[in-house]
Structure formats: structure tokens, C-alpha cells
Design a binder for these strands. Structure first.
Lengths: 248, 248
DNA sequence: CGTGCAATTGACGTGGCTCAAGTGGTGTGG
DNA sequence: CCACACCACTTGAGCCACGTCAATTGCACG
């Protein structure tokens, strides 16, 4: 079978719709072929399937091709703390590079296609391909940034602002992936949203209800429609309740 | 002047007491010399001096040689959100690699010696020295981890647990640097601790007072002595108030 | 010795958690 | 096709940890 056929019929990086959000970004053809050759793709993960569990030796990083996942850690009390929701193009596992063991868990929220990137091979290849090395650093840097922003959100904004920010962030992430930024389906439960934002299910539910009553959004189960994005931005930004003023 | 004299009389990586916490870790002599040669060391930074400000183009990463700093971002309301306190050996600036601009501010909390590592040179060198590249990735991975743990702390633990965890974390970081883990000086104000932990000054002050009244610690201004580390661990871990039970 | 910021302490208010009851939607087995 | 079980989600009532506001003390520096 010719390579043309391969790229037409098989799942690979070359024909992946979100490759510019992922590792392949900035890679030339020959480097991309090399990267693609080390990536393994297995059958889809189903809701509840885990990519890895805390403590297991780091074998691979994972890239989301389709679907969505949550990553979480367990604290000393054994409670789950969700640290991220992953969408197509996201890379998973950077936090485990340091001590070569997975630091937490990663679990599919729905049926998902996952690209598995054996870490040793990636590490080797990144020594040969500077653009790949730089892209890995960029993605790690992005994750650090996202975590810091998240930290700012939960330490200094009230519940309304957190939920509004969450809706906006999903909106912008869907937009980057060529999907609607004003109407989307949540693959996570209210409880998972609350856990992620440091709120209870009840609070999340009440606020979505409130936003709906104020005609800012429309919710129907897992489906969300953002009707007044500007208003959501205001709520996310300048919190309406004079907001705890930490020093300027 | 011989190289022996150089290493005896000048500040460099070879004679740096905390080089195994920093970039040099695992580097052989010749690589270490190369790294050292690109590093610039200027006069000490004084309390309040900033290494960089948000928006400026990324020129260097910074390593703390002595002293301490805070990094912070400003949210949409212009409020400061402290994202990290830095001690000797820490590297600063990873979050800025992604878009080649500093994402926040970094400011000395006291007189501090800082090693400046021009980013372009570091990037080049990391292409030639695999051990350096791997150490950079390890340090970035560590930072991601620290941020996730911090996220777990502020989203799901009460004020007591946060302050206790903060005291313990400082303790372990001082220990790694060969300093006392049971008695140390805070270089940050109560307000800065509160900002970092998502609490008000008053709450931090009250809890330090409470811990002291319970003979768990002894505070005298910026000086802290941990008297009952086990107890602090209990408070940091299993929170005494049944603690918001997110799902297990 | 005065100026100014850091820290403490008290009184009070409230946002969001807890507990509890009810609704809705979905899959399974009879 | 219905009955039932099981979740996810919603909604209400009450309470408390922590934020807000305000006054005071302590300490460093010129």
C-alpha cells in the first residue's frame, strides 16, 4: 500500500485535524513522519477507562485525538481533586516526567481516541529534532500558565466568577478546535465541575440556574448555550460583589 | 589567574552550594563549564526590585542564588495574585517560554543574589547537552506538580490546613537547602502569605496565634519555630473539621 | 520622637457549605 | 412496554467559617 493510501486511510498525525494544537506544530514533513512512527494508537477508551494511575512508572505521554478526559490527584484524605479537563490536541502526563512515575490519574469522560507516545522514544527524538524539543517546552510552559491562572481564580474569585470563567474557557477552547464557541455539550458532571472549581455540586447547579433565569445562558442537561457572552465576561472578570480586595 | 583561583574566588555554578537543586544537577564538568559561561551575575537585588514585569519580552530565566522572591500575576481587576515564593536553587520564568513574554512579575522579598540565564543561549546549549535538556524538563515538570498540589490545597482544604501546609512546605524546602527545618524566618508578610493561600491577613494572623496558643508553633514577628511537627502534619492532612467531602 | 506600615484583635455579616427532600432521565430485567 | 433502580441534577432551609470593617499595638527607620 502506498504512503498516499496510508495517509488517506489511516489515523496519523499528518491527517489529524488538530495537529497544530498538538506536538506536530512547526514540525517539517520528515520530522513529523518520525514522530508519527513512534506513536501508538489503540482501540478507543470508554467512559471510566483510565490512561494511567498514580504511582505507575511513566511509560508514555498521551495526546487526545477525540473525546475528553479528566486528570485528578488524590489528597491525603483520599479525596479526588480534579486538576484538568482535556480536549482534543491536549497532551497529558507532563507532571510525571520529574520522577518518572505518574503523579495522578487520568480517566476518559466519554468514548475517546488517544495517541500514546512512548516517553523514551519521544525523549530520544526530541534530542534530534530541535523544533520538537521547543514545542514540548512550549506546551509545558502553557500548562504552567494555565495552572497559575487557575490558582488565581480559586484563591480570589467568588463562585459566580469561577463558573462564568469556566464557561468562557471551554468556549474559547472549543473555538480553537473549530467548534462552536457559543453552544456546546459538557462531558463532565456538575459534581466534577464543582470539584474542579472548588465548589459544591449544589452551588454549581444554583449558579447555572441563576445565569439561565437572567437569560445569560441556556442550559438543558449537559447542553449549554452562551447567550450573552459579554455579560459572562463581566461576571468572570470584575466580580459584581465588590470582591475581596487583596492588595493592588 | 588559574582556574583554581577562579573557582575559589568567584561566584560560579561549580562552587554554588545549592547547584544540585538547580540547573547544574547531573551535568558533567565540561557541560557545567559551558553553562556557567553563559550565566550573568549582577549586583544584588534589593527588597522590592523586580526581575521582570508582565508583557516584557523574555530575555532570561533566573536562578535564585541567595535570598527570596515572590512571583505574581495581576488579574482583570488589577489585583495581585502571588503564584510562588522562590528560595535558593529555584528557577524562575518557565511560564514565559510559551509566548516569549513574561506572564507576570517577579520581585525580591529581601536582598538577593540572582543568576541570569539568557534564554537564547540556554536554548542553544540545551540542544547540545542532553543532560541539561532533561534537567530543564524535570524542573518544569516539578513546577507543574507543585501548582497542581497547590490547586488541591486551595480548592478543598480549610484555612487551618492551608496555613499548616504552608509552614510544612517551607520547612521541607529549607531542609533540602541544608537549613533548619524546625526554625526559620519568613521573608514575606502575613498579607503575602494570605494572598498566596487565598486567605485574608486577619485569618492568617489569627491562625498563627491559635497554633501558638496550642503550643504547636512559636511565632515572634517573622520568626517561626515548629514545636510539634506531627500535629502540624495532622492539621495539614486530615482536616479536623470533617472537611468538605468531595467524592472519594 | 514621629511617621508609617505590619500585625493583632474584636465585632459583625454573609457566601457558600451542609443536610435533606424531591425531580428527571436512562438502562435493565421481568 | 412498564416497573424499578440508580444516578445526575435541582431546590430549599439553616448555619458557620471566613471575610469585612474598625480600632489598637508593635516595630523599624529617618
Amino acid at each position: 500500500m502506498s504512503t498516499e493510501n496510508r495517509s488517506a486511510n489511516y489515523i496519523n498525525c499528518q491527517n489529524c485535524g488538530i495537529n497544530q494544537l498538538c506536538l506536530p506544530y512547526t514540525l517539517d514533513d520528515s520530522s513529523l513522519t518520525k514522530l508519527d512512527s513512534i506513536i501508538e494508537r489503540k482501540r478507543p477508551y470508554q467512559r471510566g477507562d483510565t490512561l494511567f494511575r498514580a504511582g505507575e512508572p511513566l511509560t508514555s505521554l498521551y495526546a487526545v485525538r477525540s473525546g475528553s478526559l479528566k486528570s485528578y490527584i488524590l489528597n491525603d484524605n483520599g479525596e479526588m481533586q480534579i486538576t484538568a479537563f482535556h480536549l482534543p490536541g491536549d497532551l497529558i502526563g507532563f507532571s510525571s516526567i520529574s520522577d518518572q512515575r505518574y503523579q495522578g490519574f487520568s480517566e476518559a469522560l466519554e468514548t475517546s481516541m488517544i495517541c500514546e507516545i512512548p516517553y523514551d522514544n519521544l525523549e530520544l527524538l526530541s534530542g534530534q529534532v530541535p523544533t520538537l524539543r521547543r514545542q514540548i517546552m512550549r506546551l509545558m510552559s502553557d500548562e504552567i500558565n494555565a495552572d497559575k491562572r487557575m490558582l488565581g481564580l480559586v484563591t480570589s474569585r467568588n463562585a459566580e466568577a469561577r463558573v462564568a470563567t469556566f464557561l468562557l474557557e471551554l468556549s474559547s477552547r472549543f473555538q480553537k478546535r473549530g467548534l462552536s464557541s457559543s453552544e456546546y455539550r459538557l462531558s463532565m458532571t456538575r459534581a466534577e465541575i464543582g470539584n474542579y472549581l472548588g465548589l459544591t455540586v449544589e452551588t454549581v447547579s444554583r449558579l447555572l440556574g441563576k445565569f439561565q433565569r437572567e437569560h445569560i445562558i441556556k442550559v438543558s442537561g449537559r447542553l449549554v448555550k452562551l447567550c450573552d457572552i459579554n455579560r459572562i465576561g463581566e461576571i468572570a472578570g470584575l466580580s459584581p460583589i465588590p470582591c475581596q480586595k487583596k492588595q493592588a
